[in-house]
């Protein structure tokens, strides 16, 4: 597959943080290309820079150097407001700690990204209801997040990540806060829905079982992103 058809192209990406007066490099000159519809798993131990990598791709954080091209737009040259709009329109997020908004109902949480994108409310609600049914939460639309279990909250988060039809879904340890069985269900659901919607998924995880579902597995090691050999 050629670079011309790539959905995401990352070149020479570096990031470091200051710690006790010294710069600690997190990412060193990372290069990556992702083709449309691809599911990538990024493996690595805690503190290896997986979350930082996702934050840079989403524009939440800024790289020290390098380029991030998504659908012909370079995130690195965008200002804060442009990155926010970009994230609003093209990125879906699934967090380890679900991060649902406690003051919004399940339906409102899922509707919000589409609303932000400017989708008419009725249309956004219809899409959200459909997604909630797909994640098995039909009938729970009016509940507030504190009434849901961890697994249910993460299902809402998955529905939210897809509700505004993003180009790319980023999942940061999506099962890290769930028991094994629930985690497996959630992972299956995430994979199924993103593939079904034809979306790209980049998932940071340290769970090898989850990584097995990906089309490609990369490992973050000493700030470099290296390809894992294909597993049987």
């Amino acid at each position: 597959m050629s670079a011309l058809t790539a959905l995401l192209r990352i070149h020479g990406l570096s990031k470091s943080y200051e710690e006790a007066g010294q710069r600690r490099p997190i990412l060193r000159n990372v290069d990556l290309e992702i083709q449309p519809g691809e599911f990538i798993a990024v493996l690595g131990s805690s503190g290896s820079g997986k979350s930082t990598f996702l934050n840079l791709i989403s524009g939440i954080d800024l790289a020290d150097s390098g380029e991030i091209w998504l659908q012909g737009q370079n995130l690195v040259t965008m200002n804060e407001a442009e990155r926010t709009l970009f994230r609003r329109n093209h990125i879906g997020f699934v967090f380890q700690f679900f991060n649902l908004l406690p003051t919004l109902t399940v339906l409102e949480n899922v509707t919000l990204p589409a609303e932000l994108r400017g989708t008419p409310l009725k249309q956004a609600q219809a899409r959200a209801t459909e997604l909630l049914a797909q994640v098995g939460l039909a009938g729970r639309e009016g509940s507030f997040p504190d009434r849901l279990s961890g697994g249910e909250q993460q299902r809402v988060a998955i529905a939210r990540a897809l509700s505004h039809d993003p180009l790319l879904v980023l999942a940061d340890e999506p099962t890290g806060n769930l028991d094994e069985e629930t985690g497996a269900h959630i992972m299956a659901l995430l994979e199924q829905l993103t593939r079904q919607a034809g979306k790209n998924l980049i998932m940071a995880t340290h769970n090898l079982e989850n990584a097995r579902l990906a089309d490609r597995t990369l490992r973050m090691h000493e700030g470099k992103l290296v390809s894992e050999p294909a597993r049987p």
């Binding site: 407001a81 609003r88 991060n99």
Partner: peptide, 15 residues
């Protein structure tokens, strides 16, 4: 702070 962080991550602008 967590809710605002989430909102920002979802694309809600600072404004």
């Amino acid at each position: 702070r967590q809710s605002f962080g989430t909102l920002r991550a979802l694309g809600v602008s600072s404004r």
